[in-house]
């Protein structure tokens, strides 16, 4: 589904992605962790071309992203992206947030889109908040609307960039529950997160990044309990202490 082959990216002189090789299969849930500034976000932002990279090959759903002639609209329409800060459109209701892209990108009928939007909102447990504006919702509810917005495009892949990092502790669970359910339904997911409970419960693989390099990959239990590299061990001991 997603194949990175020797991908390199620089921000000026900073080598943010250093020789990334990764293969994510269809239906696989991959958790990416690592210290801040290690390139995790950049890595998943490359998958829907929010970021360009300078060297290497990247295939997403059969399309070659290093080839500049690909249809980006089509690519992005098939990939849901959930941001740390939600980024809902504040002047639209939850339902309008969810139906904007289906109507304008997928070109589906308005009535159909409303039905679809309500269905997706119900799926994240917010059927009763369809008419609410983002400012009227809690952080956890906003993030669930953002997930519904992604799902409304019936994506093949869902990308999550620290989806719970901006949330109050008591709201993290409700967002993770939605993601666990999604993983259970066989969605292909790449999740940047430090939520180890989530990683252990649903991830097929955990990937550890540091300084732009993909340092370690492995099954979650193995990775968290017996990390192979010192850098990973150090990182895990740090996130475990609180």
């Amino acid at each position: 589904m997603i194949v990175f082959k020797n991908v390199h990216k620089w921000f000026g002189k900073l080598h943010v992605l250093n020789d990334i090789n990764l293969h994510v299969r269809s239906g696989e849930v991959v958790v990416i962790c690592g210290p801040s500034g290690s390139g995790k976000s950049t890595l998943i932002r490359c998958i829907n071309r929010l970021e360009k990279f300078q060297q290497g090959e990247l295939y997403v759903d059969g399309q070659a992203l290093h080839d500049h002639s690909i249809n980006l609209t089509k690519l992005r329409a098939d990939i849901g992206f959930v941001f740390q800060q939600f980024h809902l459109y504040p002047h639209m209701t939850a339902l309008q947030n969810v139906t904007l892209a289906p109507v304008n990108v997928r070109k589906i009928d308005k009535k159909e889109a409303v039905a679809l939007g309500r269905e997706k909102l119900a799926r994240v447990g917010l059927a009763d908040k369809a008419e609410a504006y983002p400012a009227q919702l809690s952080g956890g509810q906003q993030q669930r609307v953002a997930i519904a917005r992604g799902l409304a495009m019936n994506p093949k892949i869902m990308l999550f960039d620290e989806p719970t990092s901006a949330l109050d502790p008591e709201m993290i669970g409700e967002v993770l529950d939605v993601m666990v359910q999604l993983a259970g339904e066989g969605m292909t997911m790449c999740v940047v997160t430090h939520e180890m409970g989530f990683a252990r419960q649903v991830a097929h693989r955990v990937i550890f990044m540091d300084a732009g390099q993909l340092v370690e990959k492995g099954a979650p239990d193995e990775f968290f309990d017996h990390p192979k590299t010192d850098r990973a061990a150090q990182f895990i001991s740090k996130i475990l202490t609180h």
Partner: peptide
Amino acid sequence: VPNGQIEAGISSGLSYTQ
């Protein structure tokens, strides 16, 4: 208008005009 909202729009395939 925060850049993040524009990125959200890009991510769901909306064109520049949209």
